[in-house]
Computed example of a mutant assay.
Amino acid sequence: AGLDIHAATASEMFNVPLDQMDSETRRRAKAINFGIVYGISAFGLAAQLGIDQGEAGAYIKTYFERFPGIRAYMDATKTEVRENGAVSTVFGRRIHIPAIHSKSGAERQFGERAAINAPIQGAAADIIRRAMMRMPAALEAAGLSEVKMLLQVHDELVFECPSELAEAAIVEIKRVMEGAALPAVALTVPLVVDARAAGNWDEAH
């Protein structure tokens, strides 16, 4: 698998080497990573991490200092949605945010948070859909017609197949999923897919 984004954030934020990362420091970085995208306040982060508000505010300030591109993305996205009432994924799919034009300040703030999140989750949705659309034909072409795609769970696909085909199926499924953005979009960060075979979904995790 690729680099653990929460551990990498923790390393940058708290000056802890990756090979010395403890679970609590990573947990704090994870809360900051997700909280920032959803516009969390120092008050909200303090409550979530069980720390005082001043410390939480310092975490948020440090985060934007270490990752200025995230602040730039958030500001640019807010400007875009205010001007156009919509944002787009990297594939060009438009996502309309009606709340941005609400008379309610709280609803407009919700619209800003939704706009920041939509291109990210929207692109992930686009990618998994592209993989799902290509998968049946790819499996058929690879001589794996007995491998059946059962369902999607967020960014995960669940398949069923005879046990003797599992290893070959994993190779083909990973190939299709990791290349799903192409040729429309060449991602600068490669997609890395983890795949496991087991007797049931629970055991596969």
Rank of each mutant, 00 (worst) to 15 (best):
L18S: 08
V81T: 12
F159Q: 04
G2C: 07
F67P: 00
P119C: 12
Q152C: 08
A137V: 09
L182V: 10
N15L: 01
R196W: 01
I128M: 14
A29M: 06
Q152S: 01
G2T: 13
L157R: 02
S104A: 11
I5F: 07
Y38E: 06
G143Y: 12
R66T: 14
F91D: 12
M21R: 07
I100R: 12
F110S: 12
N33L: 07
M135F: 09
N15K: 12
I170Q: 15
F67N: 14
L182D: 05
M135A: 07
F67I: 05
G143S: 08
T188Y: 00
A142P: 11
R27Y: 05
G54I: 02
E146N: 14
G44F: 07
A72H: 11
T89E: 11
A29E: 05
E146W: 04
V81H: 14
V147K: 08
C161M: 15
G85H: 09
L49H: 00
G105Y: 04
A125W: 06
A115Q: 10
A137R: 15
N15W: 01
L151W: 04
E160I: 00
A186E: 14
E24G: 00
V192H: 13
G122Y: 05
A142L: 09
I36H: 02
D22H: 02
N200D: 15
F64V: 01
G69A: 06
L191P: 00
F91E: 11
L18M: 14
G92K: 09
R26L: 04
I170D: 06
D52S: 03
E112Q: 12
E203G: 01
E12N: 09
A10R: 00
G85N: 03
S102D: 15
R27T: 01
T9A: 12
I120W: 04
